[in-house]
Amino acid sequence: MVELNAAVALLGRFPALTGVDLRIEAGETILLQGPNGAGKTTLLRLCAGLLAPESGTVTVLGHDLTAGSERRAVRRRVALLGHSTGLYEDLTVAENVRFWARAAGLDAELSVERVVGALQRLGLDDGLLDLPVHRLSAGQRRRTSLAALVVRRPELWLLDEPHAGLDQAGRSVVDKLIGDAVAAGGTVVVSSHELERVRTLSPRVVTLAGGAVHRDTSP
């Protein structure tokens, strides 16, 4: 599913990953932890095909990501929730989620059906659907951003601080979303500082330090 061997990745000239060895099986959920600057976000971006490995090998869903064409091919099969929401401020919640569904290649009819389902799963109230994003709270934006990923039904979920900015109800929705993704056969990588919360989601915790895997443990 995901395999990194001595993977090195640069951010500009700075080596953000200095030689990561990691294997994640299909259907597995792993938690990434580590201090700021440990390379968690870079690792997720590398697995999403947004970065090219400087050296070493990265294979995701059967794609060797050293090749540019393979990186482009894998992107459609993964979902990356980053620090930014990727939403358009002047479009409504429904328009944003519909746009991302269509951009991912879903036809109009299917995208409407999935958009409705995704918005309901994320607990977005019907009254919010026609609101422009610039009128939403940070938590509502985060949920909308997740809904835009849910419609794509990705095989690999890469979630960077998915609970950030969410209230208790929102956090529960995210936990359920991760559980549903795993139940549907998806693979999930969660990066988080909230270890106590995310520990309930998976027994496997991978700790990064200095751009490499420091510890890989199943308690």
Binding site: L50, R75, S84, L87, Y88, E89, W100, A103
Partner: peptide, 17 residues
């Protein structure tokens, strides 16, 4: 700036478009 404001360009790259 519309694509840069909140990381939408990353989303477009990930869409496979």
């Amino acid at each position: 700036s519309v694509e840069q404001a909140d990381g939408a360009l990353t989303g477009l790259r990930l869409s496979g478009m």
